[in-house]
Write a protein that binds this DNA or RNA. Sequence first.
DNA 1: TTCCACGAGTAAACCGGTTTTTGTTCGCGA
DNA 2: TCGCGAACAAAAACCGGTTTACTCGTGGAA
Lengths: 379, 379
Amino acid sequence: MQLNRTKRRYDSGVQNEPSLPGGANAGAAPARGKRKGETRKATIGDVAAMARVSKSAVSFVFNGRGGVGEEARARILDAAAALNWKPDARARALSRSRAQALGYIVRREPELFSTDPFFPQFIAGVESTLSGEGYALVLQVVDSEETERAAYASFANEARVDGVFLGDLRIGDQRPAELSELGLPYVLVGPDAPSGAGPDPIGLDDAAGVRRAVRHLHALGHRRIAHVGGSDRYVHSAVRRRAWEDEMAELGLEPGPTVIADFTGAAGAKATHELLDLAAAPTAIIYANDLMAIAGMSAAIDRGLRVPADLSVVGFDDIPLAPYVVPPLTTVRQDVIQWGRASARVLISLVEGREPAPIELPPVEFIMRGSTGPVRAGA
Amino acid sequence: MQLNRTKRRYDSGVQNEPSLPGGANAGAAPARGKRKGETRKATIGDVAAMARVSKSAVSFVFNGRGGVGEEARARILDAAAALNWKPDARARALSRSRAQALGYIVRREPELFSTDPFFPQFIAGVESTLSGEGYALVLQVVDSEETERAAYASFANEARVDGVFLGDLRIGDQRPAELSELGLPYVLVGPDAPSGAGPDPIGLDDAAGVRRAVRHLHALGHRRIAHVGGSDRYVHSAVRRRAWEDEMAELGLEPGPTVIADFTGAAGAKATHELLDLAAAPTAIIYANDLMAIAGMSAAIDRGLRVPADLSVVGFDDIPLAPYVVPPLTTVRQDVIQWGRASARVLISLVEGREPAPIELPPVEFIMRGSTGPVRAGA
DNA sequence: TTCCACGAGTAAACCGGTTTTTGTTCGCGA
DNA sequence: TCGCGAACAAAAACCGGTTTACTCGTGGAA
């Protein structure tokens, strides 16, 4: 009768297979229950029946719990293999009160999302940890504060995920508080800033990279070193700008002019023109990402300047293109993949109630290429 | 007693809250069940009790089914709002036999994953459709054929997702057949190639873009037009190469030299050197993506050539940086976001057993910038 | 010899929803 | 007044696992 029930269900579920007239644009795999219900997808009950044991015995074996003899165990494993049975993730999630999934909500304008080298690398890193641990990654892209908030609420209320990665921290960000309120575990993914209250973020020491850049330019004789940063609403922008200011001060230099841009190429070009229009134009510019740096370089060349002879340029990220622009871009590289890995490890520990192992991330690297050089004699 | 049961469960579940000594690197939200179980997260039973109706009534209201009086309905909605109750996604998934999630498995080397402008845009497009429909996107990044196969099997057997996006189609790809076997619905995401058997893929007409590029160069007087493509194992690479060949033939030109590269900057540069080393070096090169094109341009400039005076260059993708390199890159742009949207719509229809609405995608655009110009007089 | 601990295994409750079945009321026509 | 279908609502089965409580032998210690 089990079969009967199921059959009925499917028969009414798939509403009489609309015949998809003439080349519908899609691959139609017959959703479930082919023709005669012949491949009904085995359940734990089927396995138990075939192995002549109870459901619990099967469950015990598949969860590494004792209490099952060697002989029965073998029968169970055979039966499961024969039926190609794997525990259904949905049923498992329900009974264990665990989704076995982690969430990542990204709020960003599509254009930026498609340039930023951070996301793909971070995700790749996260995945490399997750897949080994049996967790899935649920990604959501949102475009406004409302939808962002709704997305977190939905993750929490509907229990779709067991924890989330919190990136792109903003100054005075409410999300940590809201997540605690919702009871959803999280890790902060951000530069290693001295945080206020609350837990420390997992991140790399961006600031060290920027300071290296400033010292490098100083050593080349530059004194008027400008900075093109991102919006100060973001913690990582603020950290990079702060590092630039601090290092300039430490070298006894007046922090040069600074422009706030938005990480896009257009903004980088515009900012560069503004800086070069100044009476005391800078001889070097440090940008908050490579995209702005490359666009800035291009803008400078358009004005007839030579890079690096007339203007030195430093980026941030080391995108794969950085070595291939003319001149090759001097920049700061972070190992984002490791960063993602570490974040995932910590979040999993947290979700499972374990003590997170201490994390160790490689330091940021300063990559010297052709876009920086000695300051022009005249300057 | 309901409460009692639950409480017990949580008490033993959270193993006595390890006190996270000294600045653990993570945001610990007390997993569930704070202190006294005061915020136990409401269930449908609680809502029903508060509204003095049965669970079914609540379920009916939240699923838009009739059979509930106006008065009871109001009480139910009030109660749900008061308790901030949303149906638990896991329980829902189980009883409806629907995960309400779609999967996307990406096999790619990390480096490429981080450059390719396709993924972020595609995902952004997919999301913009999904979020409105209440579906989640489960992403998985794999690095080998084995892990890829395992990933699909896991998605299907564990019923983690209701359908998948199938991208990066390879020649003779087994995945469609395997997915049909597994009973998992899918859409093919790829260039609009004349497919063999099986369902048509959803995609843009890459070939048109490449043909436009060839004609453009021909009009500028170029006759030796080379092509740097991706591995022919990929359908999209093959389609682009084929378009180049066809158009050359149509214009009465011998298809120039062609090199197979792997979409990375390094490969683009290497391929370019090879082509320029030829006795009859090409006067123009069409690349299969912008990254290779820009790297190629850089390689040419390193050899003392001027772009476009000595060599014209065409890319593919129109990455955000394309307008900002020197000279700005002539390339082909696809509206990947729309593409993602359409794919998601079709997949959802498929999963829900509906007839997919016909899709309409914008044509690819040919973007003329500074990297192409009239052929050198001497050539 | 008796008792108990323990290993092996099972039945049933449970997770939190959805869906089917069953049961009342009530209004209305005959 | 009786009968019957519509409208509403409660009860129960079900989704496919996990987990708890309990049974049944068996061997070793007292």
